[in-house]
């Protein structure tokens, strides 16, 4: 089983919110910055990789029951976003790494487990 914690530790990411939820299982992932694309095509237990920082990402992740959100390329979540994530219990993780690298490495982690 791959957890958010495994991903955070292996890739050296930084958790900004909801550490207590890092044991959540990650079953897959989705990458995207268009919220209606993510709404329609992502699944429960996905980790969502994005550059969006507005608080609407928490609403999407919560409705879709994502394992968590990873914000890439050094982008920083708005303070409203973190406050809302705290309330909804959605882990928000940040990194300087590019989306390409993050997605590639998570993909490998998830599929090595098979």
């Amino acid at each position: 089983m791959t957890t958010l914690e495994t991903i955070v530790e292996t890739l050296g990411l930084k958790c900004k919110c909801c550490w207590e939820k890092l044991k959540t299982e990650v079953k897959g992932g989705y990458a995207g910055d268009l919220l209606s694309d993510v709404m329609a095509n992502s699944k429960e237990h996905d980790v969502w990789v994005t550059r969006q920082v507005h608080q609407n990402i928490v609403a999407v992740a919560s409705l879709k029951e994502h394992a968590g959100i990873i914000i890439v390329q050094g982008a920083q979540p708005d303070s409203d976003t973190l406050a809302k994530a705290q309330k909804e219990g959605i882990p928000v993780i940040v990194t300087e790494l590019s989306e390409f690298e993050v997605v590639g490495r998570i993909y490998k982690l998830l599929h090595e487990q098979d």
């Binding site: 910055d33 268009l34 919220l35 209606s36 709404m39 329609a40 969006q52």
Partner: peptide, 17 residues
Amino acid sequence: REMGFGAGMGLPNIRKF
């Protein structure tokens, strides 16, 4: 658009689902 909306996918997806 800055918030990640405006892809023109909302209504098509409503219809699809």
